[in-house]
Write a protein that binds this DNA or RNA. Sequence first.
DNA 1: AGGCAGTTGCGACTGATTCGCAGTTCCTGC
DNA 2: GCAGGAACTGCGAATCAGTCGCAACTGCCT
Lengths: 183, 183
Amino acid sequence: MPLANSQIPGKFQALLSDRGIRLTGQRRAILSVIETAKRHLDASQILRRARKLDASIDRSTVYRTLGLLKRHGLIDELDLMHLEGEAHYYERKLNRDHMHLACLRCGKITEFASELFDALQRQVEERCNYRIAVARLEIGGYCAQCRGQARSVENHLPTPARHRADPGAEPHQHATKRTKGIS
Amino acid sequence: MPLANSQIPGKFQALLSDRGIRLTGQRRAILSVIETAKRHLDASQILRRARKLDASIDRSTVYRTLGLLKRHGLIDELDLMHLEGEAHYYERKLNRDHMHLACLRCGKITEFASELFDALQRQVEERCNYRIAVARLEIGGYCAQCRGQARSVENHLPTPARHRADPGAEPHQHATKRTKGIS
DNA sequence: AGGCAGTTGCGACTGATTCGCAGTTCCTGC
DNA sequence: GCAGGAACTGCGAATCAGTCGCAACTGCCT
Ligand SMILES: [Mn+2]
Ligand SMILES: [Mn+2]
Ligand SMILES: [Zn+2]
Ligand SMILES: [Zn+2]
C-alpha cells in the first residue's frame, strides 16, 4: 500500500511476462491481491485473499511467488518492527522509496517519503561504493497521539500492540478466536 | 559489533541494574557475549557463546533476555536482509546510529554512519511528529568487489538468472559457514 | 496440436521463537 | 547476615513462519 497507488490494473502482470516469467492463474491472483491491497499484508493474509480468487492456491505457492517478486525487485519485504509475531509484510515497490514508522504503542503504520532519504541513498552508493538494490528504513517510536499524555516520563517501553485485525478477512470469524498463521 | 567499540567492560551491566533490573549470572554472561562480539550474532550464536561462560543457560533465557534488552533500547535487532534463514541479529546500541549494507552476492555486512542519516531522523521526528525509539536502515545491494565484472547491467537479481525464466535462486555464501539452529 | 521446462499442491519437515510451570535466586528490608 | 517474595530460570512441549521433495499439471513456444 504505497503512498500514492495510481496504477493501471494489470500492469503488474505485464512486468512479469515481459521478463519472460510464466504467468499462471495463481500468480495472477497473488499479484492482484498485492496490487490492490490497502495496507501491508503478510504471507498468510495474502494467501487468504488470493484464495478468494482461486480457492486451490497453496501456501507454498504464495511463498514461492513472494520469493520470485522479491528477487525481481517488484515487491519489498518489511518487518514493521515485528509488532506482533515474526511474520514479514509485503508491498509493491514503486518508483519512489519510502520509509515506515511503526508506533510501538498503538501499532499504527505511517509511510513517509523524503528527499533526504533519496539523498542518503545516493551518498551510500557513492561513499560505500555500493550498488543499492533495496533500501529498508524502518522506525519504531511513538506517534503524537500516543504520546499525548498519561505516561510516566520513564516508560519508553514498547507495549506491543496486541490488536490488529484484517478488516476484509474471515467474515464469519468469532472475535475471540483469531486464526493466525497460514493454513 | 558497532563501528567503534570502545567501552569500559561491565558498563553494559551497570546500565541494567541502574534501571532496577535484576542482574543474574545468565544475564551477565549474555551481556558480555553481546558486548564483546566482533560481528553480528543471532540468538543461537549468542546461546552457544554464553554457554561457554555458564553451561546451563537455556535458549528461552537468551530469548527472554534479548527481549528485555530490546525493550530497554539497549540492543538493536537486525534482519541483515535475511541472507540466510529467518533469524534476527543483535548488536549493542551505542550513541550513534548506523546503517547496515548487506551484499546480496557475497553476504558481507558493511556498517556506515552518516550525518545525513542523523538529519533524516530529525526530519522524521519533526515532520511526522514522531518520537523515534529505534531506527533501522538496512540496505541490500552489491559491493564493489562483487560488482567487479561479468554482470549485465540489467540484472538486479540477487542470484543470476540462468535462462529466460526464473529457475529459483539460492543465497550466495562464501567465507562464512556457520552452524545453525539453537541448542 | 504437442512437448516439456517451469509450476503447483501436498504433506512432511526444519528452524525460530514462545509458553506454562515448578523449582531457584537476586535483592530488599529487617 | 538472613528470611521472604517477586523475579528469573530450565525444561519440555507447543506454535509459528517458512521450506522442500516429489508427482501431477500447464503455460507457452514451435
Ligand atoms: Mn509502505
Ligand atoms: Mn525480520
Ligand atoms: Zn501510536
Ligand atoms: Zn559482495
